[in-house]
């Protein structure tokens, strides 16, 4: 895997804190490994939309990586509920189902961005930097960029 310049919170220089939501444990572990190479810290995981909402309330992460197709409550509905109560929430949808209607629905309901699976680390890294642009900063001298 490539070396990425760590993305940090501009307010305190601390690692970006992630909540990863996917019904596949395998997908969650892969995303966790990826964001750790961006200098991020995974502070929580959830396997469905209902748990995602409660974990967001409990942890208030900097970024949520949210799958769309999940049991109980799908990702778009969960994103909408989170953003309704927390308008500054940064939610990035990560799904293999990336047709236009789905992407538009997710963005209209408050998601900040969309990344299609299989996830390429360099694509996710750029999206994270973009979503954190109002708050994030990249460390210096920590390896080659994407």
């Amino acid at each position: 895997m490539e070396n990425f310049v760590p993305v940090k919170r501009s307010e305190d220089g601390q690692p970006v804190r992630y909540l990863i939501v996917d019904d596949s444990v395998f997908a969650r572990k892969n995303l966790a490994r990826m964001v750790e190479t961006f200098g991020g810290q995974v502070i929580g995981e959830a396997g469905d939309g209902v748990s995602a909402i409660s974990e967001y309330e409990r942890l208030t992460p900097d970024i949520v990586l949210m799958d769309i197709t999940m049991p109980q409550m799908e990702g778009i509905e969960a994103a909408e509920k989170i953003v309704r109560d927390h308008p500054s929430a940064r939610i990035v949808m990560v799904s293999s189902v990336g047709y236009q209607e789905n992407i538009v629905a997710a963005l209209q309901r408050g998601a900040r961005h969309f990344v299609q699976k299989p996830v390429k680390p360099e694509v996710l890294y750029e999206v994270i930097k973009y979503v954190m642009r109002d708050d994030g900063t990249t460390g210096r001298g920590a390896g080659a960029g994407a």
Binding site: F26, S96, V97, K117
Partner: peptide, 27 residues
């Protein structure tokens, strides 16, 4: 195996939806 199925089928569903076929995929 489930995650690979999800990715392969999800990407195909994306193409078909963008071609005008409207349907929903279960996990």
């Amino acid at each position: 195996v489930c995650e690979l199925a999800n990715q392969i089928i999800g990407n195909a569903v994306t193409t078909l939806n963008d071609q005008g076929f409207h349907f929903h995929v279960r996990p």
